[in-house]
Design a binder for these strands. Structure first.
Lengths: 192, 192
DNA sequence: CTCGTACGTCTAGCAATGCTAGGCTCGGGT
DNA sequence: ACCCGAGCCTAGCATTGCTAGACGTACGAG
């Protein structure tokens, strides 16, 4: 039995290596540079090995996305708990979200720009994705307003910061005004 | 001289054919299905002909994006002029924008998701893009608020509706609540 | 009207991509 | 000690964007 356990351990280690390498490659040179050949070469295995861990490139993207979602949830909760007062909490959430997107552009792309084969907004949505949304929801309810559904408010908040993140990152909005835009958005959304 | 003119006319016609075909193919089966071979086959020319009109696929995407921007500007202005009162105008703009994105997903992708090699938010930004932004700006100034820069407010508005459009379209937000989200967003942004 | 030229188009091919089939080798269990 | 199978690699397929070079045709000069 010990042999099998060892093999499984090695397999898990290698899987982590694949994901870490894919992520590193993506952050350094973009997802286009993450080819199966390059990835295989970096982990010092042949390409078919990748396919014994993942169905294909899409699934690798999806796996990185799930990692990122877990990290985003942590970052959001940390930011929220460090702020005092509902208004400050909303601002902190927005900044933490945009900060995450800016610091981990490739991971952000894997989550929200690319197709990682993940189900969103459905019963079979993976837990990390639900949890990242929950991290927003549990802090936004108090500023949604009396007659506004907290879930709906969270969706709108998310969409707005997502729009800021992507348009800024792709150079479609001038980067120098990013902070002022965030401030304005928070002012409008968080009606105390 | 007449010969040369005729040739230029034919060239322009063929260029329009290429763009219309690319757009049609993209709307029907997504941009991934727009390969140079398929596109060439549809227009009944060989692939190299495409490269005598455009530097490459990216430039085709960019050209479709500019077409789309012009149409979007028209749609936005039409919607704005049909509404009376500042508040209704904002709502009409948001609905027109989201409606455009939903009806022309491939064109929307060409404009805001894909890389068409276009410059945004810069001095050399193509006119249609500037004009589409202007169509928003000229109608949003009156609801930005006294101490808020209209340009900045327009950017935030744009980012928010863009977020709604993309997240909804990629199945990351439940489609059935789209209308309620729009309403909520407009309520918050348009403080009279 | 004829002929050379130049433009426009096509055939063929390159490197790179995601993915897969088939065989080889080395380790483990009997 | 030997056989068998898991696990890995080499090699290859179809498809992608893009390009080089040859070929034909239609134009313009004589």
């Amino acid at each position: 039995m010990s042999v099998q356990e060892r093999k499984e351990r090695e397999r898990a280690t290698r899987q982590r290596l694949i994901l870490a390498t894919a992520r590193e490659l993506a952050e350094q040179h973009g997802w286009d540079a993450v080819t199966t050949r390059r990835l295989a070469e970096r982990i010092e295995y042949s390409q078919p090995v990748l396919y014994s861990h993942f169905r294909g490139k899409r699934e690798i993207v999806g796996a990185v996305a799930l990692e990122g979602a877990a990290e985003l949830a942590i970052a959001l909760r940390a930011a929220a708990s460090a702020a005092d007062g509902p208004r400050a909490r909303v601002a902190a959430l927005a900044r933490a979200y945009l900060d995450f997107a800016q610091r981990n552009p490739a991971v952000y792309d894997a989550m929200f720009q690319l197709d990682g084969g993940l189900a969103f907004a459905q019963p079979d949505t993976p837990e990390p994705l639900k949890d990242a949304f929950a991290a927003l929801l549990e802090n936004l309810g108090e500023v949604a307003g009396a007659d506004v559904d907290p879930g709906l408010f969270t969706e709108v908040f998310w969409a707005a910061v997502h729009g800021l993140a992507t348009l800024t990152r792709t150079g479609r909005l001038p980067p120098e005004d990013a902070e002022r835009r965030t401030e304005l958005l928070v002012n409008r959304l968080a009606t105390l």
